[in-house]
Design a protein around this nucleic acid. Structure first.
Lengths: 111, 111
DNA sequence: AATTTACTTAGGCAATCACTTAAGTATGGA
DNA sequence: TCCATACTTAAGTGATTGCCTAAGTAAATT
């Protein structure tokens, strides 16, 4: 099972190159060279980005012959999504409590 | 208007201290000292984390007297959420196309 | 067997990060 | 007016990041 951890996931997504690699792989799997093609940087640089994406669990890859094929691991994305959903839920709870309060004391502070 | 940018947002969320500060502020606004209280690190370190959270647009703060009060800026969170939704939508489209394909050629490759 | 393709490994380098301590500056209370 | 509170500014340090070039290795292709 891939290591899924929010630190590494958000870290991986913080870089525009890596985020755009994720966008590419969300469409379909690709080889390292295909993945590298759109970027001006060296292949080793791309492979380093890929290593971070794999460390975060967002991407997995396997080598067949001399070609390494990379694909998304959707579970890692959904872990991050859950974190956002929790924050949103808390914010909404807070607004609900405020709403209740205002319903009971429409003119402001009860003191 | 706060600068909202995915690089800075994910960068901000990649650090466990900052993420936990966001979790705290999702519950209610807090002063800098309140925000700093749970952590072992120095106040300047906390203020630096806060600066990054503000740079990302996730948090906004204002100073009244000698107290700076920090609160969440929900719009910045939802920008990041949208990015995840788009990735998920793409992954689902891909699976839909695969499903269509399998419906037409249930025994595999048509060649 | 020689060459090309597709990565992989190793090392280096400048910039940024996550802290630190020390020394400020306002503000508010006794 | 003195003192504590709530930050704020500045400067330094070691570790990590995001690249690079150069030199591998191993699997096809010719």
């Amino acid at each position: 099972m891939a290591a899924v951890n929010l630190d590494l996931t958000f870290q991986a997504l913080a870089d525009p190159t890596r985020r755009s690699m994720v966008e590419r792989l969300s469409l379909s799997p690709a080889s390292v060279s295909e993945l590298a093609a759109p970027y001006a940087m060296s292949l080793p640089a791309i492979v380093q980005h890929l290593a971070l994406l794999e460390a975060s669990g967002l991407v997995r890859s396997e080598k067949v012959g001399r070609v390494r094929t990379c694909r998304m691991e959707p579970a890692a994305l959904s872990l991050a999504e859950q974190w956002f959903n929790q924050r949103r839920a808390e914010a909404e709870q807070r607004l609900d409590r405020l709403g209740e309060y205002l319903k009971r004391f429409p003119d402001g502070d009860p003191t």
